[in-house]
Amino acid sequence: MQSTNLSDRILRPAQPWFIDLSLIVALILSYVPVSRLSGWPDWMALTLCFWSIRQPQYVGLDKAFLLGLLVDIGHGVAMGQYALAYVLLSHMAHTFSRRILWFQPRQQALHILPMLLITQVVMTVVRLIAGDSFPGWTYFLAPITGALLWPALSLLLLWPQYQPEDRDDNRPI
């Protein structure tokens, strides 16, 4: 018997303006000065990963690259560090989107975790090559909190698509 998955609900089409808005909000969240609070999730990576899985036609590598550059500038790091990481993340998300969509959000989180970890590792390698010091293992807490937040984030970002076309309180389904 084929496993049922919760994401087979018939969704309304995603609105481009909502995707853009969510990406901008994520960008702002990534700028929030948390003074190197370890475990603060990379909102930009999470949101980008989500839309790369859900809407690969709309959120492609170009958007990942541009948003990565904006994060680079906001964080005052070398141009291309986040851009490289996000381009790789987006590419991985495109590759595995067919597989990931079969699973429930909680199981999806287990797929997201290694992808986020790889982006962190890429950034660490870039910075170590550039001559910076290793920031400590707490740096890798961020992908874990990100993965934990994945189910809630999925619910939030799919909320507009869950809304029925026309609300009918008397409809049986």
Partner: peptide
Amino acid sequence: YVVLCLVMLVADLHYRYLEMVRHTLSVVT
């Protein structure tokens, strides 16, 4: 894009060529 990122990284870290781009985009951010 990956190649572009790597080129940008080298250009920024080693030669500081991209300060103009950075200043322009900082107006957005």
